[in-house]
């Protein structure tokens, strides 16, 4: 059973008014359990509208034709909606703006409390969630979330979501506004969460370098339609598609293209800096070997003379 199955999804904002805007058009998308899906697209391409359908924050407009099913539960079924919201964890942009309680522990406990769990289970989950995001329970539990640094606040907000132990974790630009060290911390946290808490990850990002590095599969949206769906290599190697979708290439791919245009012999499907660096290393060593052989030839000839 796939983790997420979306069929024929359409959505129109301000329907039947002069401001009518089609945000999603015939979206069909399946996400398998254990996948790390990267969702990319220019501003206004429909990414946020799409993810808000996953836990019923936006209702289906055409229930007859379209469906959104997460772990076998339909997002249209009112009875299962509450359960669905525990199943799909949503980490919105700047999630720290949603912190509201007077202590970290109470804030993280908000979700589990709504799940009507018993007190011991709630406490255990809060403790575990804080430890997983790298905040020592004894040090942080009783502090006010508003006295923490930006990166810490974001961790608390993420802990509040994963305390519900969602099977699918959706993150909308989780590193926006963080400094480089904070960015790396949160990105490696997302990878860790996939291993330890939520096996299926759907992450929205504008950073193609991060996407190339982290995602198993990339889905690109443009004007509400899926225009690409494949591995980072498949998607980023289709240069025309990337350009049409208004996306950036990963820096590594862009640099590789320039080098290939100049006659450097490296593969055309490089998407990460590590791969580019390794390939260029190979090219350099083979050049040195060739040069060495040529030199050997020359010295032998010299001796003959």
């Amino acid at each position: 059973m796939p983790a997420v199955e979306i069929k024929n999804l359409n959505f129109i904002y301000s329907k039947k008014t002069p401001f009518e805007k089609r945000a999603l058009q015939d979206i069909n998308l399946t996400v398998e359990e254990g996948e790390f899906l990267g969702l990319v697209g220019a501003t206004g391409s429909g990414k946020s509208t799409l993810i808000q359908h996953l836990n019923g924050l936006i209702k289906l407009q055409d229930k007859k034709r379209s469906s959104v099913v997460v772990n076998g539960m339909s997002a249209t079924d009112k009875k299962s909606l509450k359960k669905l919201r525990f199943e799909v964890g949503m980490v919105f942009q700047y999630p720290e703006y949603q912190l509201f309680e007077d202590t970290v522990a109470k804030d993280v406990a908000f979700g589990p409390k709504n799940m009507k769990l018993d007190k011991d289970e709630i406490d255990a989950r809060v403790r575990r969630a804080l430890e997983v995001v790298g905040l020592e329970y004894d040090k942080f539990a009783e502090r006010s979330p508003f006295d923490l640094s930006g990166g810490e606040k974001r961790r608390v907000a993420i802990a509040g979501v994963i305390a519900m132990q969602p099977k699918v974790l959706v993150l909308d630009e989780p590193v926006a506004g963080l400094d480089p060290v904070g960015r790396e911390d949160i990105l490696s946290l997302v990878k860790k969460l996939q291993k330890e808490v939520s096996p299926t990850i759907i992450m929205v990002s504008h950073n193609m370098d991060d996407m190339a590095r982290l995602a198993d599969r990339i889905v690109a949206l443009k004007d509400g339609c899926i225009v690409a769906n494949g591995t980072p290599k498949e998607v980023f190697c289709d240069r025309k598609l990337i350009e049409d979708a208004g996306l950036d290439l990963p820096a590594a791919t862009r640099i590789a293209d320039k080098l290939i245009a100049r006659g450097v012999e490296i593969p055309s499907d490089i998407v990460t800096m590590d791969a580019l660096s390794a390939e260029l290393g190979k090219a350099l060593r083979s050049r040195i070997t060739v040069a060495a052989k040529a030199n050997d030839g020359v010295s032998e000839e010299d001796e003959n003379v």
Partner: peptide, 14 residues
């Protein structure tokens, strides 16, 4: 990123 790449290329012998 460009400077980082040049650093790792230096490790490769550039």
């Amino acid at each position: 990123p460009v400077t980082q790449l040049s650093r790792s290329l230096a490790d490769e012998g550039f």
